[in-house]
Design a binder for these strands. Structure first.
Lengths: 169, 169
DNA sequence: ATTTTATGTCAGCCTTGTTGACTTTCCAAG
DNA sequence: CTTGGAAAGTCAACAAGGCTGACATAAAAT
């Protein structure tokens, strides 16, 4: 690691805030995100689905029964965009869309067994890479990793993230 | 933070490798990446450019004179895809494409003053968010952040990242 | 002289984002 | 009770930016 490159720096130094350090962080995000999505992307090719389907499946699994509108906000896309993805998932029998009991305008989303199976396949792959990275870096690094990511989020998304963080709604 | 949530864990514990912890890391990556790209995306709208243009500009700035082929590999897209982006940047006078001196097949890419100005605008915005996140999390967290990201990269991309890391080629 | 490499280009396709216009459903105010 | 607005969803059309395949050119390497 180059001059000023990290934990050895410690306490009060502000060297970790140089433009150079920030640029390294930016590039690290870029390259790491490629790795982060690589394994699920490979799997999705076998099913003719894309990253958008993965994201929908992930959060439906995460919070069974969530409404389309909530999912919209979490994913940050338009309802039209999400609808296209959701429709194929429903047609293919991976997602069930149940009309709300109280409010019949709402659709509550659930994974079918088939959907849950794909979710498992995708998240197993993604977790495997994450686990390897966590193990290589160690628990203290992981805590820092999460802290920085959290601080990087838009406040509204951070709220969502934290709501879901501890086993959410 | 929930049970097993971080640095307090310390040393030998493996609780940071539970599926739940990994899932949180996955979601943190997802939400943080949205924040990571949000500011440049907003700026790019004013110029009718997209994220693809930003990435090209970033790495041309980062490594002036790099060849099309190198940029291709770093970005992980096809030459047709990159070419479309690069052509508009050259046409608009943001990037200069110089025929190689030694090998005249190669095109060496440079930012013009106009291109450098846009690069500055974009990276100022992106660095501002990164700086705020770094400052909020502190130097130790930043070191961990970088460690985990690095471990998450595909080996080939990690090589590129490390080559460029300390002020590159 | 031939083959390989680096680049560029044309055409066409797919995914996933966008906006705009419209329907259905629900709720609440008059 | 009716009417008007908000919420949810659908359809259509478009754009960005990925992709593949086919092909051209120039330079380098064999």
């Amino acid at each position: 690691m180059s001059a000023g490159g990290g934990a050895a720096q410690g306490g009060e130094s502000l060297l970790f805030l140089t433009d150079e350090q920030l640029r390294k962080g930016i590039e690290a995000m870029f390259f790491a995100y490629r790795g982060f999505t690589a394994d699920p992307d490979r799997i999705l090719e076998n099913y003719a689905y894309g990253r958008a389907h993965h994201r929908a499946i992930h959060f439906i699994h995460r919070q069974p029964g969530l409404t389309v509108n909530t999912l919209l906000t979490v994913l940050g896309v338009t309802k039209q965009s999400l609808n296209r993805v959701l429709r194929t998932l429903v047609e293919d029998g991976l997602v069930e869309s149940r009309v709300g009991r109280r409010d019949k305008r709402e659709r509550h989303l659930h994974l079918t067994e088939k959907g849950a199976a794909l979710e498992r396949e995708l998240s197993d792959a993604q977790r495997a890479r994450m686990r390897a990275a966590y193990r290589a870096a160690g628990p203290a690094a992981v805590a820092g990793f999460r802290q920085v990511l959290e601080a990087m989020m838009d406040p509204e998304l951070r709220r969502f993230y934290q709501m879901m963080k501890d086993g959410g709604a």
